[in-house]
Amino acid sequence: MNAFATDMTAEPDGVPETAHSEELLRVDNVSLSFGGVKAITDISFDILKGEIRAIIGPNGAGKTSMLNVINGFYHPQEGTITWRGKERRKMKPYEAASQGIARTFQNVALFKGMTTLDNIMSGRSLKMHRNFFWQVIWRGPAEREEIEHRRKVEDIIDFLEIQAIRKTPVGRLPYGLQKRVELGRALAMEPDLLLLDEPMAGMNLEEKEDMSRFILDVNQEFGTTIALIEHDMGVVMDLSDRVVVLDYGKKIADGPPEEVQANQNVIDAYLGVSH
């Protein structure tokens, strides 16, 4: 009788491995230093289209620097970055953004005095085509354009289940919700690659579960590729398809979560060994 039970229990994230084969971003032998301090040394890895890629490592391992390199905030002294098959050199963050790389920050970076709606709307600014003159007049094409953008934003609000705080100034929201709004703002850009810098830092268990659900849903529903930095190992192991581990600016492991978890170098890096 129970055909129903067996054939419907497919894992929600049971996407076949072959789905991620196209390379979206590739980092080759990248090194970054500030004066004499080497933040990143000779790191190479790739991010495949449609996957969730985690970057982990102990404090000061160079994870955030790596994200900053990817979205063009830092420029590495050595090495190359290949974005969608094209090697790219110095790029400004807004150029990276217009090419489809969005990110959220470790410390929430929102306009505290603006509402949730306006904050997410600000994520659409790169997609606004009418110039300043039209924006001021706000008639005809500009109005139509704004309505179109608002529709997109409402989709995101619905997706993230933040209808109740649509008109609430972000500064008044609890931290967990601010993080969600920030994710919304990044999603508003309709990015191909979403960089999340510790999306769950400082959250309680329930908020973490919600956020994990949203990250999975973003990945599944919109097909967005995600690179995330996270310290909660449970979250990393559950969410990500592949994990890259950094320690003291060097890559020490790269592979599926189970493999990385068993890697002796990783265990040493986290627990510490006598040198």
């Binding site: 055909a3 129903f4 054939d7 497919a10 929600p12 996407v15 659900r213």
Partner: peptide
């Protein structure tokens, strides 16, 4: 229980839709 019908698609894309 034979069939389940849902209103909101979200997160259900990869479920087996034989009885869903």
């Amino acid at each position: 229980l034979k069939d389940v019908i849902y209103d909101e698609m979200r997160g259900l894309r990869d479920y087996d839709h034989t009885h869903l």
